[in-house]
Design a protein around this nucleic acid. Structure first.
Length: 608
DNA sequence: ACCAAATGTGCCCGTGTGGG
DNA sequence: CCCACACGGGCACATTTGGT
């Protein structure tokens, strides 16, 4: 059983805080994926990690269950980490206060009061850190939360409603303010009825929601694990210095949902949230319209999609070429063969089919060819009433196919060769390199393209053909409930799911950071050629005006070879493919595991 | 495991562009 | 005008991915 803990002191100390935050979030997502893999091998894993005030709980089902039965472990660790940082945080909060005379504008005061309320509310819930205050819920049920210690004549409400003088008064008397949670909010239960079953789409949305600060492309797990909580972020952090990157991972509705697990509403809300809670919470976050969108959209079958047609054509080409050379007969005779004849031909084909390089096809490829042949025969124009996948109609060929697959498995031709993901160092190196700087048309294009690939991956990033079709309208800007700005893909990967009202995948802003992806995107849009609507336009080498790009769109081949080019230009340790970007979290985890193993080994050898 | 769809990669051909 | 080069577009092939 493995246990990995990410301490508050991030392992990549020399990097920018946002780099660390990105890396930690990616690593935790990847760690969770790895826990799932370990669980498949019957290894039970339980771990929780603290980064700043965020706590991530990941592990196998039993591991998480155990972690949840021992909240004292988590609290102890959190309290320990918290105590180390508490002084610093209070110092920061003080720096916002009026008495230091450093801040005067209302917005800053409002934020400081908001933070103060979040800390007090968090304390009332028994959390070691900030928890967003559900003002709307409290407004509708004022007796649920009692606030003591506010300046005389000041009633509790949203900080935005106070005037500057009141905000100052509240901050001056901050030490007297205390919240008491009398009743946890329970209305979420009703949402269970509304939401119905949880599809993988909603599941993905759930993951994105709680992990919303960095949308991470993580390999999805099989649907049967649907009930599992991928990764639970149990507390909320509001970085005072970095207001735009407030990593409030737990929505207040989620918090309320977690309270459902408590039988007694008066009892302190537990630190863990069950998978069920998350499902309810996140579905509740969808408006009625979005719910129906999700339900209606489902998973459309693109039987006639360009790719399928291409695949069908390729499969038949392979069969025809093989048939012509093997039987010395015209390939067209395949179309009119009886099932019996076809069974015999396919039996031979499965045994003898070879690639253009005279290798055996891999199991996946052979399978793809087999399905292509079936699609061709059953589809127009032939529309034959046969199914070559069905044993009763094609017993000999299917028996042979299974046997060939067994052989391929033994020969190692059944395993999937995964794309090489990016190493942590390369990711950071690329972000720090001049290849992604904002000062030239080409590098700005690089930056925007990479950010889109990195943050959206399959869920909006698309491949070269999709990217070729991107327009300015393919992405939109939004602001979440905490005031954080983000960019979202207007359509998801299937291109059929409008998600403007509640985008699943978000590329969040990093205010003040020169590598802020949202700022870069905005700058890029401002430099685009107004006479073309394409998102990826050809850079002008030496622009003389504010227009940095010409009307020609960047083609599929250039888009398709972006990452290999960036790898070379940034002198990364490997030439990565575009697809590598999607696989990156897994590699980040491996990097962590290696570091962990190396550290453990060196410590062990020191002890010996 | 199965399946459709998407993607990576390489190749070829046509076209536009800039320098000699 | 010629030539080299870069790039778009299209295609073929092989493989991977994500949903069921």
């Amino acid at each position: 059983m493995a246990q990995i803990t990410v301490s508050t002191s991030a392992h990549c100390t020399e990097e920018h805080p946002s780099d660390k935050r990105i890396v930690v979030t990616l690593l935790m997502s990847a760690l969770d994926s790895m826990c799932k893999e370990l669980a498949k091998s019957r290894a039970e894993v339980a771990c929780f990690a603290v980064y700043n005030q965020e706590v991530f709980v990941v592990g196998s089902e039993r591991g998480r269950a155990y972690t949840n039965t021992r909240p004292d472990f988590q609290r102890g660790f959190v309290t320990y980490c918290e105590s180390e940082e508490k002084k610093g945080r209070e110092q920061k909060l003080k720096s916002y206060s009026y008495e230091h005379g450093e801040v005067s504008d209302k917005e800053t005061l409002r934020k400081a009061v908001e933070d103060l309320f979040c800390i007090c509310y968090g304390r009332a819930l028994g959390k070691p850190s900030l928890v967003p205050v559900p003002f709307d819920k409290i407004q509708s049920d004022p007796s649920a939360v009692v606030v003591n210690g506010l300046p005389e004549g000041v009633c509790f409400k949203e900080p935005a409603s106070y005037d500057t003088l009141t905000l100052k008064q509240i901050l001056e008397g901050q030490s007297h303010i205390a919240f008491t949670v009398k009743r946890a909010f329970l209305e979420q239960k009703e949402t269970k009825v509304i939401t119905g079953e949880h599809t993988n789409t909603t599941r993905e949305f759930e993951r994105r929601e709680y992990d919303s600060c960095i949308p991470v492309p993580v390999k999805a797990e099989p649907a049967e694990e649907h009930e599992d909580l991928e990764m639970t972020t149990v507390t909320v952090k509001e970085e005072l210095e970095d207001t735009g990157y407030n990593s409030s991972l737990l929505t207040d509705s989620a918090l309320q949902a977690s309270s459902e697990t408590s039988e007694d509403p008066e009892v302190e809300v537990t630190i863990e949230a069950s998978a069920d809670c998350w499902s309810k919470t996140c579905c509740f976050a969808l408006g009625d319209q979005q719910q129906s969108d999700f339900q209606l959209s489902g998973s459309p079958q693109h039987f006639n999609s360009k790719n399928t047609q291409c695949s069908t054509k390729w499969g038949m080409t392979v069969l025809r070429k093989w048939y012509q050379s093997h039987f010395r007969r015209p390939a067209s005779t395949i179309d009119s063969m009886s099932a019996l004849e076809l069974d015999e031909v396919l039996r031979e084909f499965y045994i003898n089919a070879k690639t253009s390089k005279k290798d055996k096809y891999t199991k996946n490829s052979l399978n793809a060819i087999r399905k292509s042949i079936n699609r061709y025969l059953r589809g127009p124009p032939l529309r034959r009433d046969i199914n070559i996948l069905c044993d009763s109609e094609f017993p000999a060929s299917n028996r042979t196919y299974r046997e060939v697959c067994r052989t391929l498995k033994i020969e190692g031709k059944a395993s999937t060769k995964h794309t090489t993901p990016m190493a942590v160092e390369d990711l950071v190196k690329l972000y720090q390199s001049s290849v992604l700087r904002l000062t030239t048309p080409q590098t700005l294009l690089n930056k925007v393209w990479f950010d889109i690939m990195f943050f959206f991956g399959r869920h909006g990033g698309g491949g070269r053909y999709t990217q070729r079709e991107f327009t300015r309208e393919s992405f939109g800007f939004g602001i979440d409930e905490y005031g954080r700005e983000f960019v979202y893909a207007v359509k998801d990967e299937r291109g059929d799911l409008e998600q403007q009202n509640c985008p699943k995948v978000r590329m969040y802003a990093l205010p003040g950071d020169p590598r802020c992806p949202v700022a870069a995107f905005q700058l890029y849009l401002s430099k685009l050629n107004p006479f073309s609507n394409a998102l990826f336009q050809h850079p002008i080498l030496h622009p003389s005006t504010d227009i940095w790009y010409n009307t020609k769109p960047v083609g599929v081949n250039v888009l398709g070879s972006m990452m290999p080019r960036l790898s070379k230009e940034a002198q990364l340790s490997a030439i990565y493919s575009n697809h590598s970007i999607r696989m990156t979290p897994i590699m980040l985890l491996q990097g962590l595991l290696q570091m962990h193993t190396t550290k453990a080994t060196s410590l062990k050898s020191k002890h010996q």
